[in-house]
Each structure stands twice: as structure tokens, then as C-alpha cells.
Amino acid sequence: MTYIVNGETLESSAKTLSELLLALEYEGDWLATAVNGELVHRSDRADHRLNDRDRIEILSPMKGG
């Protein structure tokens, strides 16, 4: 399926959000995820099934003012 991850279009066979994170080698307990503009909690990623053309945001801590 085709997903838009952090603005980049890519193909993946992952079916859930946690599978996609694994496939893209995202790891660590500091990530936050959203699908189509809605937060997906860490504990819900394994159950969150993805659809074709879903827009996925994967954010991480960064310096800020």
C-alpha cells in the first residue's frame, strides 16, 4: 500500500501502524504518531490498521524555544 509518511510518499506491506514503524526502523519510546490528523497513542499502534493513502506523522523530541 501507499502511505504518506512525514510528507514523503512510500510503498509498504505493513498493515498496522506498529508494523510500519518497525519496517521503517523507527524505534524508541520517545516517538509520537498521528494518522490523518488524529493522535494514535503508543498503546494503540499495534491495533491501528492502516488504509491506502493514509497520512502518517512520526514526531520526535527536538530543541525548542
Binding site: Y26, E57, S60, P61
Partner: peptide, 22 residues
Amino acid sequence: VTVSLRRETAGGRQGGAFFELI
């Protein structure tokens, strides 16, 4: 201290290092 969130490239390690520092 104030902090932010940004898109992380695959792996997410830069954010992880910053998180650890904080």
C-alpha cells in the same frame, strides 16, 4: 525548559539523543 517536536527521519535516533540529554 522548553522543548519541541519535529518530524524524525527513520530510526528516530536524533530525537532520542536529545530526549536523553533533557
